[in-house]
């Protein structure tokens, strides 16, 4: 099944699929997810571009360790001050991966719908996937990031304000996207539940996967456990998915596989049984 998929992709190049990483609420892991997911797709052999839509507060370049290689940005391309090839940063670690940074100085009104459409159209000709890292909120930048999407990764924490904001974003995906406006089939929604702690769920201190699923009613793509590896990865500027040993990295790799149509059982949902010595001396989390 997957083989056929790659075969078609490789032969007659179809237009790239557009994935928005969105959440409404800030600080839930959109940029971490964008960096991990785009790296994951590229590692699986798909030519992937990841675009930072957070004009004025760019961070994707930092999370991906490319901050010192930014010359031109997204807004420069929109304003025709630079070509797309000049602005795209080729990732040093992963083949097939390119980063389009946001502008740090302009304001977000520079993201015009025509400008964004042109850049995305041009990228679609040569790429397989375009990942759009949305800013927090539901303002212009966030609306532009989701407008052209075919898929939405809705990043949610098991926490009341995040779940409520995700629900609001789902409403916006269904009403203000290009697909909604043109009466096309709706954006495919996928839930990424981040900062999950099975121990706290068992103790009744945290909303469970099923609780959040019941409320948002969208398919679950992945559960990313609360993990020290995430801060470690951002400190180093290496997407966490490249940390092969880590639980969060493995969870993102599983999510990418599921996105590509493979059926991979969910891990990190159940509390791990601690061994006798771990109980005695206190476990050290990965």
């Amino acid at each position: 099944m997957l083989f056929v998929f790659i075969f078609i992709k490789g032969k007659g190049k179809t237009l790239a699929e557009i994935i928005v990483v969105t959440s409404g609420k800030g600080g839930v892991g959109k940029t971490t997810t964008s960096a991990a997911f785009s790296s994951g797709l590229a590692m699986r052999g798909f030519k992937t571009a990841v675009i930072d839509f957070d004009v004025g507060l760019r961070n994707l370049d930092l999370i991906m360790g490319a901050e010192r290689r930014v010359v031109y940005d997204f807004i420069n391309v929109i304003n025709k001050e630079a070509s797309l090839t000049q602005a795209l940063i080729k990732d040093k670690r992963v083949d097939n991966l390119f980063i389009l940074p946001a502008s740090q100085t302009r304001d977000k009104d520079a993201l015009t719908e025509e400008g964004v459409a042109q850049v995305i159209e041009e990228l679609q000709k040569t790429f397989d996937y375009i990942v759009c890292d949305s800013p927090a909120g539901i303002e212009h930048g966030a609306l532009m990031a989701l407008y052209f999407a075919d898929h939405a990764l809705v990043v949610t924490n098991p926490e009341v304000s995040s779940v409520r904001d995700s629900d609001r974003i789902l409403g916006i995906l269904a009403s203000k996207s290009r697909r909604a406006e043109q009466g096309l089939p709706p954006i495919k929604e996928h839930m990424i539940l981040t900062r999950y702690s099975p121990e706290r769920v068992t103790r009744g201190e945290m909303l469970s996967v099923t609780d959040v699923q019941e409320i948002l009613a969208i398919p679950l793509l992945g559960v990313i456990p609360e993990s020290k590896a995430v801060l470690r990865a951002s400190n180093a500027g290496v997407p966490v998915i490249l940390d092969k040993e880590s639980d969060a990295g493995s969870a993102y790799r599983d999510a990418v596989s599921r996105f590509l149509g493979e059926s991979v059982p969910h891990r990190f949902i159940q509390e791990e049984k601690k061994g006798f010595f771990q109980r005695l001396f206190g476990g050290v989390e990965a």
């Binding site: 926490e159 009341v160 779940v163 409520r164 629900d167 609001r168 409403g171 769920v201 103790r203 009744g204 201190e205 945290m206 909303l207 469970s208 609780d211 019941e214 409320i215």
Partner: peptide
């Protein structure tokens, strides 16, 4: 503590989300 605060969170969310939708 035994019952946990998660069930309270779920209950509040279900109400507010239904209301806002």
């Amino acid at each position: 503590r035994q019952k946990g605060s998660a069930s309270l969170a779920k209950e509040r969310l279900q109400i507010i989300v239904a209301h806002e939708r």
